[in-house]
């Protein structure tokens, strides 16, 4: 109950700020205070969102974008984890992968989108998502592996503890908090980068296509409605992801992560 009240108050606070911002903007620009098509009021955006909800293309685009981003995130996560394991064993491979990570870190997403636009138009958003998620998962899991307690490794060595037991009792509990932290930040980034790539290089049936069209038509109400949709989907996505992680890997997580938002 306390938590629900807190969420309601926080939501109301930010809706209030939104109203105030529109009001101030309208006053400065000398525009109509009751309706602003460039910087719409929250109630206008919600009405537009309800209108979008009545269109079948809304669901089709949302589902396809969602599937693209989930698939790319899964691929990037698998690649990140595997590469981190291999690179932690072979130092040379770690040196080999560093330039790729440095490039992804320093080059803006837009540049990658423009390059991929000409090479693999339809796959642009997926590749961008992979490029954004992979380094985060890789770096965190690699760091986790490197932080494995050397003393406990010696215990495993002294008692000849089998590999499977070592993984379950030592590797997973050490690496899992790093992995969870990577995944939660990577998911948010996957959304942002994936949809941005879709908007710049829009495939059929995508949220990016609608955002791109709304921008071309200077339909800011629809832009805001899509942005709101993204926020809501991301919140649900993160919530579901945390539940899944906690259910599957519960025993490998430290107590503070296990009990977070219980």
């Amino acid at each position: 109950m306390k938590k629900a009240l807190k969420i309601t108050l926080v939501t109301l606070f930010w809706i209030g700020i939104w109203y105030l911002a529109v009001l101030i903007y309208s006053l400065i620009k000398g525009m109509d205070l009751s309706y602003n098509p460039l910087f719409p009021y929250p109630h206008d955006v919600i009405i537009r969102l309800f209108k979008l909800l009545l269109e079948p293309s809304f669901y089709l685009s949302t589902v396809f974008s969602l599937l693209r981003i989930i698939a790319s995130t899964v691929i990037a996560t698998a690649l990140g984890v595997l590469s981190a394991i291999v690179c932690s064993k072979i130092n040379f491979l770690n040196s080999l992968i560093k330039p790729l990570l440095a490039t992804v870190k320093s080059v803006p997403v837009t540049v990658f989108v423009f390059i991929l636009y000409l090479l693999v138009f339809d796959l642009t958003s997926m590749i961008i998502t992979i490029l954004m998620v992979f380094p985060i998962v890789f770096a965190n899991v690699y760091e986790g592996i490197k932080n494995i307690d050397r003393d406990l490794l010696e215990v495993c060595q002294a008692y000849k503890i089998p590999r499977k037991k070592r993984i379950v009792s030592l590797y997973l509990p050490t690496v899992m908090p790093y992995f969870v932290s990577a995944l939660t930040s990577a998911v948010g980034l996957a959304w942002k980068a994936g949809i941005a790539a879709e908007a710049l290089c829009p495939p059929e049936n995508s949220m990016g296509l609608h955002i791109s069209l709304a921008k071309q038509n200077i339909d800011n109400e629809e832009l805001f409605a899509w942005a709101l949709t993204l926020v809501l989907i991301n919140l649900v996505f993160e919530f579901v992801l945390k539940k899944i992680i906690r259910a599957v890997f519960k025993r490998y997580l430290p107590n503070e992560v296990r009990n977070e938002n219980k």
């Binding site: 003393d151 215990v155 008692y159 490998y252």
Partner: peptide
């Protein structure tokens, strides 16, 4: 082996 420290698996 009994090491100088307990070296127990925390989880």
């Amino acid at each position: 082996c009994v090491f100088q420290e307990p070296r127990l698996f925390p989880n």
